[in-house]
Design a protein around this nucleic acid. Structure first.
Length: 163
DNA sequence: GCCAACGTTGGC
DNA sequence: GCCAACGTTGGC
């Protein structure tokens, strides 16, 4: 099983939006970066765990977790002229861009801001915390994922409430 | 709103 | 295939 971090601007799609979605599931459309697409297309598998990150937020923070429930398939927003992420190079015959489906696991009791994450030794080399890191789909190490979960729990050993 | 850090584009 | 110009991302 692999671990990932997905970025989203909460103004366009937040973890609260995911919680309100049908089956608490959404397609992750709009990715228009080849490296990010390749991670989704080539490596993401059903059951992989996802850290949900709010960028351009106050504070920028990891706000919860999700899991992959459908593997990569064509992103139709790329061939919709009216869509903000329209790409003329993409078509139903040659989709280029792909997306996965994710389902909410939990919203953390509190957001884990960048400043707090930077204090955790285990997360020192996390891609998210690297200077100039802009990739919207990032691999996360198991040790990093576990450290984030530990930070999110109110107290060790207390089971979290599942939504 | 600034700007550093990237990715992409297009002339050559 | 180089690389300058340009656009975007995203923390601050």
């Amino acid at each position: 099983m692999k671990y990932w971090l997905l970025k989203t601007e909460p103004e366009s799609f937040s973890i609260q939006d995911l919680a309100a979605a049908k089956d608490q599931t959404t397609c992750w459309d709009g990715v228009r970066n080849y490296q990010a697409r390749n991670f989704m297309r080539d490596e993401m598998r059903v059951g992989d765990r996802v850290l949900f990150y709010h960028s351009n937020a106050d504070p920028p923070a990891i706000v919860g977790t999700a899991q992959v429930v459908r593997e990569a398939y064509a992103d139709p927003t790329a061939w919709n002229k009216a869509d903000h992420h329209f790409d003329p190079k993409s078509s139903p015959d040659n989709p280029i861009w792909q997306m996965v489906d994710i389902q909410l696991d939990e919203i953390f009791p509190r957001p884990l801001g960048l400043d707090e994450l930077r204090k955790v030794p285990t997360l020192k080399n996390m891609e998210l915390l690297r200077r100039g890191s802009r990739l919207s789909v990032q691999p996360v190490k198991k040790s990093e994922f576990d450290a984030v979960l530990k930070l999110a729990r109110p107290r060790p050993g207390v089971a979290h409430k599942r939504l």
